[in-house]
Computed example of a mutant assay.
Amino acid sequence: MNKVVTGALTPGSHLIDVAGVRQRYHVAGSGPVVLAHPGGPGLSYEYLRMPAAERHLTMVYVEPIGTGASGRLPAHPHGYTRERYARALDGLIEHLGVDRVHLLGHSHGGFVAQHYALTRPDLLAGVILYDSAPVTGADHFAEAARNMEAFARRNADRPELPAVLATWQSLGGLSDDEGTTRAARGMLPAYLADYWDHQEEYAPLFSITGTFISGLDEQLVPDPIDDRAALPAIRTPALVIAGRHDVICGPRWANELADGIPGAELVMLENSGHLGHVEEPDAFTRAVTSFVLGGAR
């Protein structure tokens, strides 16, 4: 999907201007509109392609500002707060001309989707929090560290394990695009529930690229996330999806999101890690399409 086309929801790649910043997005499929916001922040959107869902839904894959061919902020790599990503989504939704959309956010994209549901509920028909969490910081990192220790125990006999663990230890020192890409690829074995027995199947994921995004605002102040107290204020219909073996945003956080959001539906993918749309595409697609099409009736 590299050819730029006209018509806001015509299949293909699109470029628009949102408040002076270039926004690229990609359309595939037909049916109700679902915006898909990838994670990272800074990961290329391609890993989030959902061909099975495209048979039922119009998937609009967002290439977030600061990433890929979308524009950079003047303070790049700083300034990419959740509110700034939300303003970019405002412009994109207005451009699409759809009254209300479903917003799917994966990983860090889930953090953005939560913020959007809290601040702009009237623009959403539903929100899908896919491998997300209600909080970042020390508590989130400690949970991830425990999960990585469990991953290491399960795979202690794998000769490739030290390289994955070295990548994990390097994440706090990322400072450029090359390092971000290398880390994204190096972490993939830990992000999948059963990578080493399916290496050929998962090989295409290693085309993923990353842009370094600092996590600081324009004043170089961290943009922490703690939505726990705010979750009951989300009135948008919500679907929470997580992989049972996700080391980053796994069952603990999925349960907290589902328990905190009134009426939220929880789907746990029992044989997935952080990439259930690739690991269990049929179960993932059933959950998403049932949620979206049920709400579209």
Rank of each mutant, 00 (worst) to 15 (best):
L92D: 02
V135M: 14
V21M: 00
V127H: 00
L103V: 03
E63F: 01
R55S: 08
I234N: 01
H56L: 02
A229V: 11
L231V: 07
L257S: 08
G294E: 07
M59H: 02
G179S: 14
P162K: 13
I248L: 15
N147T: 10
P189G: 11
D157Q: 15
T289P: 01
N271H: 15
E218N: 10
W196G: 10
L43M: 15
G68A: 10
L96K: 02
L15P: 09
T209Q: 14
D197Y: 04
D122N: 08
L174M: 12
E265V: 15
L96W: 00
P159I: 12
I248S: 12
H140R: 12
Y85V: 01
R55M: 04
A193C: 07
D197K: 10
V5N: 07
E143A: 13
V27I: 09
L257Q: 08
S175T: 13
P232R: 07
I234C: 09
A133K: 05
G215T: 13
L293T: 09
Y80Q: 04
P77E: 05
H78R: 04
Y47I: 11
R49E: 08
L174R: 11
A52W: 08
L192T: 05
A88V: 01
P51M: 08
A254N: 07
E143Y: 09
E46D: 13
A230F: 02
A117E: 06
A166C: 05
G179Y: 05
R185F: 10
R82G: 00
G172S: 10
P74A: 04
I128P: 02
G79Q: 01
M268Y: 03
A75G: 06
A230W: 00
Y202K: 01
E63P: 02
R100N: 03
M59R: 02
N255C: 09
H14R: 03
P134L: 10
A264N: 07
Y47K: 15
P262M: 12
T289S: 06
D197R: 15
Q169E: 15
G31V: 06
R146L: 12
A36F: 03
S214G: 09
G105R: 02
R120P: 08
H106A: 02
H78T: 09
I213S: 05
D227M: 14
H245V: 03
L269W: 07
P74L: 03
G215C: 09
L192Q: 01
D227P: 03
R120Q: 13
T58H: 06
A113P: 05
G250R: 03
E280H: 06
A125W: 05
T167F: 07
H115I: 01
